[in-house]
Amino acid sequence: MSFLAFQGSIELGIIYAIMALGVFLSFRTLNFPDLTVDGSFVTGAAFSAVLCINGHPVWGLVLGLVAGSAAGCITALLHTKLEIQPLLAGILVMLGLYSINLKVMGTRANIPLVNQTTVFSSLEGTALEAYAQLLIPLGILLALLILLFLFLKTKLGFSLRATGDNAQMVRALGVNTDTTILIGMALSNSLVALSGALLSQYQSFTDIGMGIGMVVIGLASVIIGEVIFGTSSLLRRLIAVILGAVLYRMIIAVALEMGMPATDLKLVSATLVALALAMPIIKKKALFYKRKIAAQGIKRGG
């Protein structure tokens, strides 16, 4: 892989890692399979692009994040107050967001940001200019990692983690799980939207379809991270998710380099996640057949 492609996949990996942390929060910490992600990612990107054009790139990130958290709140409320299944609640909000995102983007399906001032312009004229696209997302990611880790170690963070483990127990200990789910989903989708907002300014455009399959990419990052870098402690898990996201981008970059058409990307992502999710069962079945064949071998031999 060329150095440029390598650097590019690291940069993208860092931006996607923010989204992967959000997916980790909903899927793993809250045990809530949240499909809002595909929509809230674009919501972040839409606010980011529109505010960029109006000369407020930083506010683009902030408002994108806030809008994402609002989307997460709606999914959480649909589930906790109206008792709609998590998957369906996420799908409904994702669908609704499609229209909202188009409205935010002024009914255009694509907003180019070429020659616009973005957050990456802020290092222009300094010695770090050449590394702006690496350093700015990295700074944001590290700050978020520390904040998220500290948050999950607070009293509220404990309740939130326990909600995903055992909601019944959390209620039996006097905590309203509707509230912990609401806070968790708001946080999760604000991370996702921030990632989308950053990506928009990084790649200099927002497209209405850029969120398709985002939840699968997030999940792939989480699983790759967990399998390769381990889950023994909370900090390790969070770092594993980040490394998983970067590794995922590298795998994609290598595949593209080897001549895979970019249009096959989603198929590869879906296959990768399906395989990773099925791994424990495949291992179990393989073991079973090995035993079965061995047993039949003995029978035939005797």
Binding site: L156, F158, G164
Partner: peptide, 25 residues
């Protein structure tokens, strides 16, 4: 909560009825 440590479980129980907040767990 199976995926949390013994002390973290006890901390949740010990916080019962008190405001949750962002204090150290």
């Amino acid at each position: 909560a199976f995926d949390m440590t013994i002390e973290e479980n006890l901390a949740i129980a010990y916080a019962k009825g008190k405001p949750q907040g962002l204090r150290r767990g």
